[in-house]
Amino acid sequence: MWRRVFHLLSAFSLVMLVVSAGLWARSSTHHEQLRTSYSRWAADDDLQHYGAVAHWNYGSIELIYARLSLPPSYFEDHGQETLDRALVWYPPGMKWDFSGDDVTMLFGSVPHGYKADYWQSAEQRRWTLGTRLWLPTILFAVLPSAWFIDRQRRKEKPWQFSLRALSVLTTVACILLAAVIWLRA
């Protein structure tokens, strides 16, 4: 059973390795973001809003999770106009949004390097985590590498590859190299 879990985690890690390597290559020339949010109105004047944002550029990625809670007392203090604006800005349900260079170039750049932050106000809480993209790429490579080494150790003649295995490996490497070149263009 543990071997099956190890295989599943290795496969998931391999997929995440390809995704993070693709983002790393793409982020050198593009500033993009992926955003999702969910808004729930428990009553006509009681808002619960949850949002997550991932944006990347110049080899860095920043992940943000935010929670906004506007109780009826907030709208009583700020008036009907604020409630009407909130109904337009935070419609009930889930939303997804992808913004490319045409929109995100106006945002400014993500700070390069590493960042961990927590910010809180009376109505909102926000968690931020930022890193260079080479770090998750290397970390996601650990489990597939361990799987590959384990597989080679179980063979009768370890570290000897068949012609078929070499051709498949060469093809995959060429496809990945072509994808990196295409993403950088």
Rank of each mutant, 00 (worst) to 15 (best):
L17W: 01
L83I: 07
F98K: 02
R154M: 13
P72K: 06
A185T: 08
L177F: 14
D150F: 09
W89C: 04
V103L: 15
A116T: 11
Y65F: 15
W127D: 03
P136R: 04
H78F: 13
I61H: 01
Q160A: 11
A43P: 03
I149F: 14
P91D: 10
G100V: 05
F6K: 02
S162Q: 06
W147R: 11
G79L: 05
L133K: 01
Q48D: 15
Y38M: 03
W96G: 08
L63M: 11
Y118K: 06
V18M: 08
D77F: 05
K157R: 12
L17Q: 02
I64G: 00
A86H: 01
W119G: 11
T82P: 00
S37L: 04
I175D: 05
H49L: 04
Y65T: 09
L133N: 00
W134P: 01
L163I: 04
H31R: 12
I181D: 04
M94E: 13
S28E: 14
W182M: 12
D84A: 14
S10R: 07
D46C: 06
Q120S: 13
L63A: 08
P144H: 04
G79E: 09
S99M: 12
G79T: 02
W134K: 02
M16S: 08
F140T: 07
A11H: 07
R154V: 01
F6C: 02
R184Q: 15
W134N: 04
T131H: 04
A54G: 09
F107T: 10
T29R: 12
L133Q: 00
M105I: 08
S60I: 00
N57Y: 01
G113V: 11
L133M: 07
A165W: 13
H31L: 12
F107C: 03
R154I: 05
L166Y: 12
F98W: 15
I181E: 08
H7L: 14
Y118V: 15
L169E: 05
T131N: 02
L169Q: 11
S69D: 10
C174A: 15
R3Q: 10
W147S: 08
S37Q: 10
W127A: 03
L133Y: 01
M1K: 06
S69Q: 10
M94H: 09
W41H: 10
F98R: 11
R40S: 11
A21H: 00
K155W: 07
R67F: 06
D77W: 05
R184I: 03
V172E: 09
R132Q: 12
A141Y: 01
T170A: 15
D44P: 06
A178W: 09
G79D: 09
G93E: 08
Y74Q: 05
Y58C: 01
L14Q: 00
V53N: 13
A122D: 13
A179D: 07
P144L: 07
W96A: 10
V142C: 12
W89G: 01
E32I: 10
Q152P: 07
G113C: 07
I149Y: 13
L17H: 01
W96N: 10
A42H: 06
Q48C: 05
V88T: 13
D150W: 14
W119L: 12
S99K: 03
